[in-house]
């Protein structure tokens, strides 16, 4: 009988690490065997009968390991199982693919939650010049990789926290933060990554504020 994944090329690999970094949020690592570009994704599953779910790689292009940032979806099939898996277990992954790719030109990176992953990959790949990173999260622990971003990007790294207050964080939703900015740059691209709600709301906001739609590049988690 045909398996559901027969027509998808999957590579068997071994989990090197599967670490909880915040409540319900994990970083999983496996050894890199295929080159990738920062911003690309892989498909991942623990069972050949289950179609892989897609995750953007959160590693630099030169890193030796492929790192995946994921949160547990309570109603999901994969992530509750994935969070229980220990280092040494098998995993099936697709080759890297995708076209959410930035270059050295000026850009604003706007992310919510684990949508920070492609921007961390870009950052780890050396793209920080001319970049502004705005990350929206619910709690103070929602700003994954914040120490590295803060050190390298300084005031160009903005964390917007919708449910808690803390020093150094903008208190409120990232859409409210964007509305407080008097003038948005007209010479750069805007990369958006996160939930469909965030991407659509931010894209509408940017367009309403005069940003041309063709300067907005969006990646949606589905």
């Amino acid at each position: 009988m045909e398996s559901k994944t027969d027509q998808i090329k999957l590579n068997a690999t071994t989990i090197l690490e599967n670490r909880k970094i915040a409540p319900g949020v994990y970083v999983l690592k496996y050894k890199k065997t295929k080159a990738f570009k920062a911003g690309q994704y892989i498909g991942l599953t623990t069972d050949l009968e289950v179609i892989p779910r897609l995750y953007t790689i959160a590693s630099g292009a030169s890193d030796e390991e492929v790192q995946i940032l994921y949160n547990i979806k309570d109603d999901g099939w994969l992530t509750p199982r994935l969070s229980e898996i220990k280092a040494g277990s098998n995993l099936y992954v697709t080759d890297p693919d995708g076209d959410f790719i930035d270059d050295n030109t000026p850009a604003w990176w706007i992310a919510s939650g684990t949508g920070i992953a492609p921007f961390y990959a870009m950052f780890r790949s050396g793209l920080t010049e001319n970049k502004t990173l705005i990350h929206g999260g619910r709690f103070t622990h929602s700003f994954y990789f914040e120490k590295e971003f803060m050190k390298a990007m300084g005031s160009n790294y903005i964390r917007c926290c919708s449910q808690e207050k803390a020093n150094g964080l903008y208190s409120g939703r990232l859409t409210r933060y964007l509305q407080t900015i008097k003038e948005l740059p007209n010479d750069c691209r805007f990369f958006l990554c996160g939930s469909p709600e965030m991407v659509v709301e931010v894209r509408d906001l940017l367009i309403n504020r005069g940003v041309k739609y063709n300067r907005i590049v969006a990646e949606i988690y589905f």
Partner: peptide, 17 residues
């Protein structure tokens, strides 16, 4: 109900998923 795909021209996408 709603949609995750976020196409620029689509009204359903405005609801989010």
């Amino acid at each position: 109900v709603g949609c995750k795909m976020g196409c620029l021209f689509c009204m359903t996408g405005k609801q989010g998923f």
